[in-house]
């Protein structure tokens, strides 16, 4: 019967079990993953099963890296998203977290645009490190993303987004995420993009400041192809800051909405 071993299709005898496969293929494997879930006990394999054999501590070959990295995915997800293109407008608290999440799951291409440099007040919520202070955010983020997943194609632009350059920057995306800070920039991007690309979904964010309850952050469809994450009212303002936990919740709502859209599901 045919099964997949580290994403390669191979033929095995019909009653092969998981431990038998290990003895045949990689006797020193100590992490056995079947269809996205780790197994310890021996179990019979079925046609079409996706098996990954890992030895903890061992560096995988370049050829096997991708298969091993995605071995805990829900089966079928990675094959769909590795061809996808996602735009991320802004590489700050929302954008850098969205980028890391999407790079980890192996989205094929990320188009990331931000004009700003890394500075110390970013580090309470943004995916940068102390030794990157002073660097353009998009360059630092690209480096970080490639340390996480070298196979993601990161197109980084150090630029300000305007209505005039939206089409050139984000014209090829399957989904766009709005990850700006100022409310007027959010609306500029949304109206500028959806008026030009009315059939491409956009996931925006509004209301994620402070340390209010996590459960008030929601994902909602507000217009055709426009989804908003947040509580709609917690603005960043004097006396109410932006901090990693709640900003991260919003960013991961956005990343999961993107994933659902890429997989043909409604986000909310």
């Amino acid at each position: 019967m045919k099964i997949f071993l580290n994403e390669r299709e191979i033929s095995v005898a019909p009653d092969t079990t998981l431990h038998q496969l290990r003895r045949q293929q990689k006797t020193d494997a100590d992490l056995l993953i079947v269809n996205g879930f780790p197994r310890k006990e021996d179990t019979p394999l079925c046609a079409g099963d996706r098996v990954v054999l890992i030895k903890r501590g061992e560096q995988p070959s370049a050829a096997e890296l991708e298969a091993l990295m995605m071995s805990r995915h829900t089966p079928g997800v990675h094959a769909k998203i590795r061809k996808s293109v996602v735009g991320i407008a802004g590489a700050g608290g929302l954008g850098s977290n969205i980028a890391v999440a999407l790079a980890r799951i192996g989205v094929g291409r990320l188009i990331i645009v931000d004009f700003d440099l890394v500075e110390p007040s970013n580090l309470n919520r943004q995916q940068y490190f102390i030794d990157q202070i002073g660097q353009p955010k998009v360059a630092a983020l690209r480096d970080n993303l490639h340390r996480i997943n070298p196979l993601v194609d990161v197109q980084a632009s150090c630029a300000r987004v305007t209505p005039e350059n939206i089409a050139e920057l984000f014209g090829g995306v399957d989904v766009l995420t709005e990850a700006f800070d100022a409310a007027a920039e959010k609306t500029m991007l949304i109206s500028g993009f959806l008026s030009r690309f009315p059939e491409t979904p956009l996931v925006a964010a509004s209301g994620l400041a402070g340390y209010g309850p996590s459960n008030t952050i929601v994902t909602e469809q507000v217009a055709r192809h426009l989804y908003i994450v947040g509580d709609g009212c917690s603005a960043a303002q004097p006396g109410q800051g932006l901090m990693a936990p709640r900003v991260g919740i919003a960013a991961h709502h956005q990343a999961n909405a993107v994933l659902r859209l890429l997989l043909g599901e409604e986000p909310a």
Binding site: D181, A183, A205
Partner: peptide
């Protein structure tokens, strides 16, 4: 019409 208001922060 759908009219959506935005607040800052990100």
């Amino acid at each position: 019409l759908e009219i959506v208001q935005f607040v800052g922060g990100g």
